[in-house]
Amino acid sequence: MLPDIDLRIANMIKALEQVILPALPRDQRLARDQAMLVAGHLRMIGEQWKSALRYEQVALDDLQGLARDLLPGAPAFLADDLAAALAMAEACDRASVTAIEQANIAIGHAVDAVILGGSDHAPMPSAAVDRLLDYALRHARRERSWFKANRLDPDQNDLPDLVTMLAETN
């Protein structure tokens, strides 16, 4: 397609940095801050958007794995919902970011319910807690790498770039 999305994003960053920011009065600090953040957001979106579908697929796969790990130890009255959410996620259209996001949310709610253990808060098997913490670490790593460009992460230098991160999960 002409013009492609990457080109348009690059153009907008240039417009912000070279035309819009210099034209903003010095005392308009909020506007200046926001213009700089717009450029930062655009740079980050520019790095991400092509991989977004792949990223959501990986995230869903990992969450499905956790759901399967939690299923055997889940209280019976919660297990049905979890199994149903899993089945829905397995059947979702993996070419659609929207469908994957929806599956992610549905399965996430079912997993939350198992973690809280219903009204009597039945304890979680320790193996399940281990699986959960393993998953949570992978999830945190993935999101930190994905958003590395925000430069807020104190350990950003330890994180892989997007391409490496997604390749590792193949």
């Binding site: 909020l30 801050d33 926001q34 953040l37 717009v38 930062g40 957001h41 980050m44 913490l133 949570a136 670490l137 999830h139 945190a140 790593r141 993935r142 999101e143 930190r144 994905w146 958003f147 925000n150 807020l152 992460d153 104190p154 350990d155």
Partner: peptide, 25 residues
């Protein structure tokens, strides 16, 4: 009044998720 900062900070949320894992472990 500045949603754009909220999403910028939000994108650092996973830093705390990882700390939670480390601390609880």
């Amino acid at each position: 009044h500045q949603d754009i900062i909220l999403t910028w900070l939000g994108s650092a949320g996973a830093v705390f998720l990882e700390q939670l894992v480390m601390l609880i472990r």
